[in-house]
Amino acid sequence: MNEQTPDTNSNTAADTAAIHLVDVNKWYGDFQALIDINLSVKQGERVVVCGPSGSGKSTMIRCINRLEHHQRGQIIVDGIELTDNLKNIEAVRSEVGMVFQSFNLFPHMRVIDNLTLAPMLVRKMPKAEAEALAMGYLERVQIPEQAYKYPGQLSGGQQQRVAIARSLCMQPRIMLFDEPTSALDPEMIKEVLDVMVELAKEGMTMIVVTHEMGFAKTVADTMVFMDQAEIVEIATPDIFFTKPKNERTQLFLDQILTH
């Protein structure tokens, strides 16, 4: 992770980076949700983003697969720049997986159908092949026995693991996690984090928005702290948790680490 400022940003940096954000700005009407965001994520790098609610963390990662669009600046994912070009958006989305806070599984499809839908429709994979792939990922998130149930019959932790498997079925090179454990009961958080730790070990490029600081300490290569629509601090975990440069970071850490 190297913090990029606009003037030091060169093309070579963009080529090697999996994700490259340059001076990204976004407004909702008059409200500015992102201010001059600069961030580069290397292939295989694990980035954990934290910060108070409303600081723009979710907005930032939702811009990376164009669920939101930025009004100014550049976002380059795997060498493809995100613009209004629908082909580019499609290409980026099939490379980038996303896991949501509220799972967003399709309630009218069985788990296996949730997993095979996109591989069959987007990757044009035969059904048998897609199902074999899906079962493989269900085994990796350790719930193959739930394949023929509906999402409504599963616990929250199981649903989130299915959601992770659904993203993995598109064989993405990058995974985005938007507060994946915030909607879960405490006893289910661990089973989801375990799956994410496994993914990290396998070398997946990940950006994780979370308040799970234990998880951050274990897997993060880089910590990003956001506040009031800006990136305030980018640091390695050992520096971030022991001697952060910015006092806003210190204040935030004091608040969430007191308990």
């Binding site: 697969n65 669920l67 499609e90 989305r93 099939s94 980038v96 997986g97 996303m98 949501f100 509220s102 967003n104 599984l105 399709f106 839908l117 996109a118 429709l121 987007v122 959601a163 659904r166 993203s167 598109m170």
Partner: peptide, 14 residues
């Protein structure tokens, strides 16, 4: 729910 459509967009569906 809008999350349904977002999830479908996120896996690349047209």
């Amino acid at each position: 729910p809008s999350g349904q459509i977002e999830a479908a967009r996120a896996v690349g569906l047209r």
